[in-house]
Amino acid sequence: MPPRRVIELRGITKRFVDGPPVLRGVDLTVPRGCLYGLVGPGAAGKSVLLKLVVGLLRPDAGALLIEGEDITGLDELRLHRVRARIGMLFQNNALFDHMTVGENIAFPLRRAGVTDAAALAERVADRLRMVSLPGFEDRMPAGLSGGQKKRIGVARATALKADIVLYDEPAAGLDPVTSQKIFDTLRAEQREAGATVVMVSSDIERLLTITDRVGMLHRGRLIFDGTTAEALASRDPRVDQFVHGKTDGPL
C-alpha cells in the first residue's frame, strides 16, 4: 500500500550564504490526494520550500521524504528518478526561450520517453485548450504577455499528469476571470487524477476556495498547518490577518 504521507518535511532549515535562515526547522506533511495551499507574506520562504521538496535546493538541516523515501542526501542522478513523478510550475514560469510554446509543453513528455509525434501533438493541444490558449503551439515565449507565459507554464507543469504537482503562483499576473478559471481547472484535474498538489499563491481569496489544507509560513517558520476551515477560523492574529487580508494586525 503506498504511503499516506506523500510529502514530508522534518525540521528543515535552509539559509543562503551570509543571509539569515530562510526556513527554520519546518515540519510539514502533505497527505496523498490533498490540495495543500502554502501561504505567507513575501520572503517567507515559500518558493524555497517548493524547490527543497524537489531537490533543486538542499537543506542545511532536517530530512525530506517523498512517498516515504528520504531524498535529502540523494545525488542528482537519483533525484531525476524522483523528479520524474513531480510536475512543477516555477514562479518565473521558466519557459525555455529557444523553444516554441509547443516544444516547451512537449519537453517533459519527450524526456519521459514519449516519442510518438501524434500523441505529443494531441497532449500539447489538450494542455493549450486547458489554459484557454488553443493554437499557440508555434508561438515563441518572447512574444507572449506575462499572463500568457504563466498559463503556458501551467500547461507544461501539468503535461506529464504527475502524481505530485507543485505550483508557485499559478495565477500571478492573470485577470480575475482567467485566474478563477485556472484555479477551478487545476482543482478539477487534481480531483480527477487524485494527485497531491502544493500550491503557493498570493491570491488567498481564490486559493482558499479550492484547498483542502493550508500552511502558513512566516519568517521561515510554519506558524499554521490545518484545514482550510481551521485557517479561516484561526485565532492566531497573524493567520487571521493574512487569510482575511486585514490591514491592521501584527504582520
Binding site: 524547490k51 524537489v54 533543486l56 542528482e76 531525476h80 523528479r83 520524474a84 513531480i86 512543477m88 516555477f90 514562479q91 518565473n92 514560469n93 521558466a94 519557459l95 525555455f96 526561450d97 519537453f107 517533459p108 524526456r111 519521459a112
Partner: peptide, 17 residues
C-alpha cells in the same frame, strides 16, 4: 540568464543535467 530565470531548474526538473 537561463539560471536566473529558473530555466536551468526547469531542465533539472525534466531530468536533464
Amino acid at each position: 540568464s537561463m539560471v536566473v530565470t529558473e530555466q536551468v531548474d526547469a531542465l533539472r526538473m525534466c531530468g536533464v543535467d
